[in-house]
Design a binder for these strands. Structure first.
Lengths: 147, 147
DNA sequence: CTGTATGCAAACATTTTGCATAAGC
DNA sequence: GCTTATGCAAAATGTTTGCATACAG
């Protein structure tokens, strides 16, 4: 973690970080493809099961790794479901937020007025940088409320 | 779970559910007391550790059970932290939100303008009831940014 | 005394990680 | 041919549960 000195004379990775992202593998393509077809949030387990069901099974760990990476790369949005699982969805066009039914999981996209701008202002006022935020509303949708 | 018929002639619990809530035990009092002193969200593990530190140690499972029960009884608010733990806080009268440094944990209380009112409006527009929400901002505070 | 609450340890579920192997570039 | 990605199984994590015991009412 500290003070490790590398003594080998030359690395193979010559050019300055032209490494150009992750390698294109069947598994990564499969995850990307299936995420493209899903419009709601889904857990890693669900994605894994869905791939298995379409005879394109890949390792569960790989699903977790890939989803994490895609989320880190801002390709996916990630939220925590009320029961504590991570759920992912294709990240379209800048952050957005959701109104989620805590029973059936139905989600509605919402856009708070002036929200992003307000977060920047608050952060600036308090000397914070490198801002991120999390905003979700939870409730019972009409159907679940009726049932 | 179903169809279990009790054959003993009389139960001890005579009157119609005058059971009057949970029993008052040292452990439950300890959890209640410590939650009363905390103004931020804290996980079960943190509560357990805090009690141990003040030589009032109780079982971890009991902490989980008690917090769950208090949350079910609407005595505590519960959120999920970004890393997937449940965090509890005394259920106060009008929610507030925070700007949290993701390095040192320093928190600043923030009050989005018209936020609660806006959430009610959005929920109503979408037929959602029994609303709850979660809003936190994360960033690097000035000190941590300098370091 | 009766039944609920506790503590402990084991069970559980979800997610992460170590390591040998396969595969991309 | 380097090096990254994968799969598997094991570890780690956070939480819940079964059961014998302690204790509140």
């Amino acid at each position: 973690m500290m003070g490790i000195v590398m003594h080998h004379t030359e690395t193979t990775m010559t050019n300055t970080e032209l490494s150009s992202g992750p390698r294109r593998t069947r598994q990564r393509a499969a995850v990307g493809a299936i995420m493209a077809t899903l419009n709601e949030f889904h857990t890693a387990q669900e994605v894994h099961a869905a791939l298995r069901d379409q005879d394109n099974s890949i390792g569960l760990a790989t699903v977790y790794r890939t989803l994490n990476q895609m989320a880190d790369a801002d390709e996916l949005d990630c939220i925590r479901t009320p029961d504590g699982q991570s759920a992912y969805r294709l990240c379209s066009h800048g952050h957005h937020h959701h109104l989620v039914c805590r029973r059936c999981g139905r989600t509605v996209e919402i856009t708070p007025p002036d929200f992003e701008q307000w977060t920047r202002q608050v952060a600036a006022e308090n000397g914070f940088i490198d801002l991120d935020h999390e905003l979700e509303l939870f409730g019972l949708c009409a159907e679940c409320a009726a049932a």
